[in-house]
Design a protein around this nucleic acid. Sequence first.
DNA 1: AGGGTGACGATCA
DNA 2: ATGATCGCCACCC
Length: 108
Amino acid sequence: MTMQNKIIAAIRKIPKGKVSTYGAVARAAGYPRYARQVARTLHMAAALNLPWHRVLGAGGEIKLTGHSAFEQRFRLQSEGVAFRGRRVDMRTHEHKFSKPRSPRRKAQ
DNA sequence: AGGGTGACGATCA
DNA sequence: ATGATCGCCACCC
């Protein structure tokens, strides 16, 4: 299993109406500090059919620029994600990964 | 091999 | 809140 595959798998777990962040996805995939690689992976989101719009920067901020940023915001609002200013209200929309950080035995 | 580059993130002024 | 700086790390010349 490559790092990129794990990152992709993590992104696929974000349900509609919820969001996550580059850093959180990286951690959920088992690669803390690899936020930039998550972003890199998202460049092929369309081809991989990934919910790319559900991944935001730390604090729920859209890191895209120009038209893409607008589209991301539009897509999120379309599935019920509320914004507070320029940021998503993470308190109510952040997806919590159930990924165990310490593969100890197993999550009961 | 070496240096520049990000859809990052945390910290500080 | 905003901008600068720095640490990070796979990619792409």
